[in-house]
Structure formats: structure tokens, C-alpha cells
Design a protein around this nucleic acid. Structure first.
Lengths: 229, 229
DNA sequence: TTCAAAACCTGACATTTGTCATAGTATCCC
DNA sequence: GGGATACTATGACAAATGTCAGGTTTTGAA
């Protein structure tokens, strides 16, 4: 189960690819691998992180608790993504919780290895910077979406997002199955509203469902809905 | 009016302080200063930026146009902030427009100077990274606020934000005077709703106004309102 | 397998928020 | 200084969304 970072395919997807052989070796020697069961936290809002987590398998939701007790899911992270980077870089406690949506396998990399490389290898730092720039752009998009689109439009968008980013299973259902509550927390609405809109989309023939699994039937109409008819 | 970056106080507030003497000299030699009148754009959504803009004076709103034709203001930038960093770093077109809220003076720094330093000076890169990490955290907070708080709560929060970040003038009015429309675009609501809530806050004795100027009368109650009573 | 807990779903209703219409007020430019 | 233009303000109404309450179904653990 333990393996060397140097040989890890996952690395190709994230900033770690900019590390030198020696740096990778050091990371590999200091990393630990652990499994996280569905529903369990990798870390929680307010934690002081001693390193970052590289996702090898499974999906994690990054969320933030609001005053009224509801979670807002800010991002869904899958294979290859590095969690906790922001916190380690800025040396602050995390502003987000990371909770496993399904069973996960993650590598913990102590912050010393990261900070060391950040100070010495400009290519690595630049790579991390580019990733963060990308995340920031996405966050801006989310802000505009939430504030300017209706719940119905955001629901449609969420389904398309899930399809584009996590694909479909053999039967055409979205490969990532979220609870209705999680869906509502991605979209930023009440669970009941999310459920109601799912029903409505079914009646309109845009999607169909089987248990909590959802399949997209009419992608074009969903797209039109996102744009506002 | 033109002056050397090496002597510029503004620099102390942003990532440029991590530059070496030689790098600063190069920046200073290649930079140009320009004034931007109230309401004019520094750059617009979709532009390909050839450099970054360092704010010397005035305030700029960073906004994004939504499908329904309304702007969402994502950030207000003042003296010392560097605009366009994200875009230059990720080598993509900007996702935001920067428009002057009042008369401004900005320095344009060609991207070559920046990229050059990014590749050679890890301290500078790390400094930029830290700034971006901070912006990302703020963006996450905005997402949660917009999706979980009522318009009234967000309005209260906006006034407190304006007070904390831009201060008050001699008469106790918020130093940064925004139009009602700009306020509604910060909060993410209809202009009419923003105006209505301003009227309501006045009746409740939380604020008072004079023309478009707004003064906070009862900070504590505003804070309670943000938290949800 | 069974039973309790959790998740899903729907209806009824209240509240919030947006939209449209219209009028007053400030501001800018000639 | 005056008129066009943009901004502020308010009412009336419709639409969107949240809340509460009650059911049904699914899930998971004993």
C-alpha cells in the first residue's frame, strides 16, 4: 500500500510535479498514507494544519459552516488534488472543513517538506501559485453564480458540473452520488428546495433518478436553463 | 509626478516589497503611471493583460458581469493593492473588470518584469502566493455569506466592511461613498432592495444619511443583525 | 431479519426578494 | 442657469424561496 511519490501517477495532476528528484525523495520519506471512511473528516474548520493532504482515491467536500448551522460546499476535490495548501502557505488555521464523500485514501505531507521547497524552488512555488490563481478564478465565478442566478439555474449547473468533472457510470448515472442535502449545500439552498427542483426536472424530462442516483437525460435543455432560457 | 519605485511608500503594502534592489530598479524603469477618472475602466473582463496595475490613489471596484446584465462586485481595491496579478500569473484573460470608483492614480508594470522575478526570486513568488491565498480565503467567506445570509444581513455587513476598510470622514460618514447601485452590486441584490433596506435601517436608527453619504449610528446593532439577531 | 435512524419527498404557508411603474431629486454639461 | 440625464425613493405586485409539518422510503447496525 505504501509507495514512493516518485512513482505516483497522481503527482502528474498537481503541483508536486514541479519538484526535483531530491525534493520528492524527501517528501516520500516523510509522508504517511491513511484511509478516511465516508463521512469522516480529514480536517475541520479552524484546525491548524501541519501539512497538506494529497488525494489518491475518493472525493472530499470542502465546506464552511455558516452562522445558521448550514454547510456551504465550496469545492469538491478528487484524485490528484492537494488539500490544505492555502492554509499551509498563509500559515493560518483552515477556513474550510474537508469531509470524505466516499471512502478515501490520502497522503499526508508534513508542512516542513512543502515550506522548504517553497523557499528554494521557484518553479514549484510558481506552480502552486498558478493552481491557487485558478482556484481563485473559480471562486469568483461561484460568487457571481450564486448571487445572480436562480436556484433552478444553479441546480441545472450543478448537475452539468458533476457530469463534466466526475463522469457517468456504466448505466449513465452521475458517477459521483451526493445526498440531496449535499446537493443543496453545493447549490446554496434549502434541502427541500433542492428536492422539489429535482422532482420538477424529472417531470420536465431533463433528468431521471433511481434512488439517490441521478442521470442527465437532456443536456442541451439543462444548458439552456443555466443560461436563462 | 513620476517617481522611483524604490522610494514608493505604497510598495510596503504589497508583494513588491519582496523584490531585490535590482529587480525594483528594472520595474521602476519599465513602469508607467497613469490617471484614471471616476467611472473609467482600468481593464475589462476578457482583456488580455500585459502587466499589473499598482494602485497609488483612489479606489477600484473589481466586478464581473452576469448573464442577466448585472455586475457583481467581488472586491474593492485601494492604495497599495496590485490588480491583474491573477491573470498575469495564470496567463489567462482577466475574469474581472476593474473600474475606478473615484479618481485614481495607478502604475502599470509590464508583465515581463513580473514574470522574470517570479521565476528567479522565490521570496517574491511566495509573497504573491500568500496574497493570493488571502484573497482566496476572502472569496470563500463571500460565497458562504451570500448563500447563507439574508440581504438585510449582507447589507449590514457591507456597511461595517466599508467602515473597517475605508474609515470615516470628519463628519462620521463612510469615507468611501458608493452609489446605491454599487452597494447593491457588492451585496448581490436589486438596487431597489438595497434602497429599501437603507430606508429601513434609517428608521431603525442604525444609520443616517445625507445625500448618498451614509454614516453608521449603531455599530453594535448592525453587528447583531449580521449574526442574525 | 428487523427495527430504528436517517434520508427522501410533498403540501401548505409565510417570508423574502425581485420587477415594474412612477415620481422626486441631484448632477453634469453646455 | 437650465435642461437632460442619471440617481434615489416608494408603492404595488408577482415570483422565488424558506420553513414547518407530515408522511414514505431507504439504510445500516444489532
Amino acid at each position: 500500500m505504501e509507495s514512493r511519490c516518485e512513482n505516483c501517477i497522481i503527482r502528474q495532476f498537481n503541483s508536486l510535479r514541479a519538484m526535483s528528484k531530491e525534493e520528492l525523495k524527501q517528501v516520500s520519506d516523510s509522508k504517511t498514507t491513511k484511509t478516511v471512511k465516508k463521512g469522516e473528516p480529514i480536517f475541520e474548520e479552524g484546525d491548524k494544519l501541519n501539512g497538506v493532504y494529497c488525494v489518491r482515491n475518493g472525493i472530499s467536500k470542502l465546506s464552511k459552516l455558516s452562522a445558521n448551522g448550514k454547510d456551504q460546499i465550496v469545492k469538491l476535490a478528487s484524485k490528484g488534488e492537494v488539500l490544505g495548501q492555502r492554509s499551509v502557505v498563509s500559515q493560518e488555521t483552515t477556513n474550510l472543513s474537508a469531509i470524505a464523500v466516499n471512502d478515501m485514501e490520502v497522503c499526508f505531507i508534513p508542512k516542513e517538506s512543502i515550506n522548504n521547497t517553497l523557499q528554494k524552488n521557484p518553479n514549484f512555488t510558481l506552480e502552486v501559485l498558478r493552481h491557487m490563481a485558478h482556484d481563485l478564478k473559480e471562486a469568483d465565478d461561484v460568487i457571481v453564480n450564486i448571487s445572480q442566478k436562480t436556484v433552478k439555474q444553479r441546480m441545472a449547473e450543478a448537475f452539468l458540473y458533476l457530469q463534466n468533472n466526475f463522469g457517468e457510470d456504466a448505466d449513465g448515472f452521475l458517477a459521483l452520488t451526493l445526498s440531496r442535502e449535499d446537493i443543496s449545500n453545493v447549490v446554496g439552498t434549502a434541502t427541500e428546495s433542492a428536492i422539489r427542483i429535482i422532482s420538477e426536472f424529472k417531470k420536465m424530462g431533463l433528468i431521471h433518478t433511481s434512488g439517490k442516483k441521478i442521470a442527465i437525460k437532456d443536456e442541451r435543455k439543462l444548458l439552456e436553463m443555466v443560461e436563462g432560457f
